[in-house]
Amino acid sequence: MLKIEDLHVYYGGIHALKGLSLEVTDGQIVTLIGANGAGKSSTLRSIAGLVKNRKGKILFEGQNILGKTPEALVGMGIAMCPEGRRILPHLTVMENLMLGAYIRNDRDGISKDLDWVFELFPRLKERTWQKGGTLSGGEQQMLALGRALMSRPKLLMLDEPSLGLAPLLVKEVFEIIRTINAEGKTVLLVEQNAYAALKVAHYAYVLEVGEIVLQGTGEALIENPKVREAYLGG
């Protein structure tokens, strides 16, 4: 579904991604783990079209999407749930979700997906008319996930969805990622909670200062001594 070949990204003078290549297979959960500043977010932001200074190839369903605007990419079926949730605090839960469906005009489809999102996150349904900013951290994460789903994406990119959440909620988030995937969405997940991410992922890449240093199935990487030492606390 998604294939990145030799991607370079520069921020000012910093060479943030140095020839990164990876592949996301249709129907899978693929995760990118690594330390802070390794380039995980830069990778997602490049795919989403938010990074200007880049070269290489990003193929989505066979088409090179490098240079497309974020809004065009949403139309092609790529949705990103950004780091820090970034829900709109002054808009209601419903308005946040409708913003997610901004590119769509199929009323019936939208209301069907809305029902699905409320089924996934029953707590959002109780808070439809509440302002996004009044939700708890966990609820805001649910809202961000639901909002991303409302564009009916083929590829869902999640940037640190468990960041700052209580352990119980972290578990819930990963269960939901699994559910979303089981319903046919391909997921590209960036996480610093490496253990949970590897547990849920079909395939995983380890990123170090802008380069991929290891890859394999989630299970294989959990067993890998190098990964255990560097990311799983021994």
């Binding site: 938010l50 809004e71 949705a79 308005e95």
Partner: peptide
Amino acid sequence: GLAMRSISKDIETTRLMGVSV
């Protein structure tokens, strides 16, 4: 109008929702 209110708080996120800012 919804897009306008959204842009006023967070342009980047609004673009990620598919809005041509």
